[in-house]
Design a protein around this nucleic acid. Structure first.
Length: 582
RNA sequence: GCGCCCGUAGCUCAGUGGAUAGAGCGUCAGGUUGCGGACCUGAAGGUCGUGGGUUCGAGUCCCGCCGGGCGCGCCA
């Protein structure tokens, strides 16, 4: 990674390159020995020291080289520092100085020119700031939510929706091509079950024991279009009795089936609308039925058979998942001829890779962890790269209202819908809440507490900084002052308010890289909070709009404007609005 | 029983093997005649569940134990 001339190249990457080059030169100069053969050498890693006195960037490379080189780490660090010092200050070098510190750290200072160039780059191309070029761009399919359309989304679905969308935004910013995908069951027993419930209500008969009961089911019953109902009545069928548990959707097209098909599509459209209010939109809505109609399941079965990992037993068709370390084999097609969910899933894998994706990401609830191994194993058995099939298991949110757990059951009709949650706490606060937490930790979400504390959500702190900057820029314009194209040379010294703010905002691309690599977004919220804090501190210490000092004002306005752009980009990564006033 | 995840400040949670473990909220004490007080400064508050191990270095990696969640169907 060398500077591309826009000024937007991540400084951390440039520093990494400079250290790697210094290493090569030190070997050439003889101050470091050639790499020992047969030893794995550590990669060059650069971090931001927690203590600013240690510099802007640091590497522990010398300590990691001590063993293979059989040299004291301080001596290695000194050899690297000497090479870095040789080119420090040269045009184009991001490094101003390098210092060693026990037990072997190599601490770096960024050059003024690199920081100044970066601020100018942000102002010149704000739309490109925060987008990084992936070393190997990938086409990624991210499948998430995928709740069956048998009822409205409830707040238990919220976390997956937000985590999935956040991941997509981060992957896109990191240079990957992302498709957002929603997979839904459109013909199985549950859809039929929904239909039976709606039919029962319409007829005034009793709802089946395992039917659906929420208010929305009654709404559906009242809204059945005339032609659908006429067809259902003509088809007949006993919809009041229990649906055969293992019917698997293979039953006839009776009233329950016909009404269920209509109702589930109606519910699906409602889900799509709810997700849109969250700022979550999907590129592809994929129905399970289409995987069969288009032959993908049969193709998957054929691939497994060719690879020799399929067998028949007790009249069923099995995938020998134990060949890949699973603890048991898995049924693909039941003895009654119906495929299992697993059968649909492997067909879907073939279909997705057929569309040219490099990676398939699944965002599942934690209760699905038992199905991870079998699907990855099947992908491997079908000749795909097991590593290209990845599952993110989202830990449960335990919803609580004033200390009492709120149960979520679609069939019992007991749940808080997503729409209700958002009406209570707002999309921006909800997005921040989930973005700031790792997806593997369980969360207690007290709705009353969230309502009470929504004004104290850090999201408003960040938005406030953005709005405050907008106000400053308005005030400056009224005073006849516009931001300069960049900051004044020499104005970003480390110990100054300007220097601290510039160093904070410069991290954005690194934050994007790290978030995409880790598939986590907490780094983005932490970054946004830190940048807002740095801005408020700067605002306290440095007067921005001062008609008596127009040049200094224009320089500071440039830095403030770059900060605003960075805050807006970070909020955009989170799908959160960046208001000009609030 | 086996498998996966979790255990960090009073609460909710961060913490790519690095230097003195952080943030928000809560508690306590302060600050603005200069551009938005939804702001700022400071204080108190921690055996990182526990015991070993690896490492120059462990909240982070490995093993055991304790506690909690989830899963272990020809269900969906």
């Amino acid at each position: 990674m060398h500077d591309d001339g826009t000024g937007l190249t991540p400084l951390r990457g440039r520093a990494r390159d400079a250290i790697a080059a210094a290493w090569v030169r030190a070997v050439a100069a003889g101050t470091l020995p050639p790499a020992p053969t047969g030893t794995d050498l550590p990669p060059v890693e650069v971090e931001r020291p927690a203590n600013p006195e240690h510099g802007d960037l640091a590497t522990g490379l010398a300590m990691k080289l001590a063993r293979p080189y059989r040299m004291p780490p301080l001596r290695i660090a000194e050899a690297l520092a000497a090479e870095l010092a040789r080119e420090a200050g040269a045009p184009g070098s991001p490094i101003a100085s390098a210092a060693v510190a026990p037990p072997g750290f190599l601490n770096l200072r960024l050059s003024d020119a690199a920081l100044e160039g970066l601020v100018a780059g942000v102002l010149a191309s704000p739309g490109a700031w925060g987008r990084v070029a992936a070393p190997t761009p990938r086409r990624v399919n991210v499948e998430f939510v995928s709740a069956n359309p048998t009822g409205p989304l409830h707040i238990g679905n919220a976390r997956g929706a937000f985590v999935g969308d956040l991941l997509c935004r981060v992957l896109e910013a990191a240079g990957h091509e992302v498709t957002r995908e929603y997979y839904f069951n459109d013909f199985g027993a549950q859809v039929r079950n929904l239909g039976a419930s709606v039919v029962a209500i319409r007829r005034g008969t009793e709802i089946p024991d395992d039917g659906y009961r929420g208010a929305y089911v009654h709404d559906l019953a009242a809204e059945i279009p005339g032609d659908v109902w006429a067809a259902a009545e003509a088809a007949g069928g006993d919809a009041s009795g229990a649906v055969a548990a293992d019917d698997g959707g293979a039953g006839g097209r009776d009233a329950a089936w016909l009404v269920g098909a209509w109702a589930s599509e109606r519910v699906r459209a409602g889900i799509e609308a709810s997700l849109a209010t969250l700022g979550v939109r999907f590129d592809v809505w994929k129905s399970e039925g289409s995987l069969y109609r288009e032959g993908w399941v049969e193709r998957a079965v054929a691939r497994l058979r060719e690879s020799g990992h399929l067998f028949e037993e007790d009249g069923a068709l099995w995938f020998r998942s134990t060949d890949y370390g699973d603890d048991k084999d898995r049924v693909v097609r039941k003895s009654n001829g119906d495929f299992t969910y697993f059968g649909s899933d492997i067909g879907y894998v073939v279909e997705k890779f057929g569309r040219g994706f490099d990676e398939l990401v699944y965002i599942w609830g934690a209760d699905h962890h038992g199905t991870v191994a079998r699907l990855r194993n099947a992908a491997a058995a079908m000749g795909f790269d097991r590593e290209a099939v990845q599952m993110l298991l989202i830990a449960w949110v335990r919803f609580v209202r004033d200390g009492v757990e709120v149960s979520m059951s679609k069939r019992a009709g007991e749940f808080i819908t997503l729409d209700e949650l958002l009406a209570e706490i707002g999309v921006d606060a909800a997005r921040w809440f989930f973005a700031a937490r790792g997806h593997t930790s369980g969360i207690d979400f007290d709705i009353e507490l969230a309502k009470r504390q929504s004004n104290e959500n850090p999201v408003y702190y960040v938005q406030y900084a953005h709005a405050r900057i907008a106000s400053i820029l308005r005030k400056a314009r009224d005073a006849g002052l516009e931001p300069a194209a960049g900051v004044a040379p020499g104005s970003l010294a480390a110990a100054t308010p300007e220097g601290a703010l510039a160093r904070a905002l410069a991290r954005l691309p690194e934050v994007v890289e790290d978030a995409a690599a880790a598939r986590e977004t907490q780094g983005v919220t932490a970054f946004a909070t830190d940048l807002a804090t740095q801005f408020h501190a700067f605002y306290r210490d440095a007067r921005v709009v001062d008609p008596a000092e127009p040049e200094r004002s224009r320089s500071r306005l440039a830095l403030v404007r770059a900060t605003q752009v960075t805050l807006a980009r970070a909020l955009g990564l989170l799908g959160i609005s960046a208001p000009a006033s609030m």
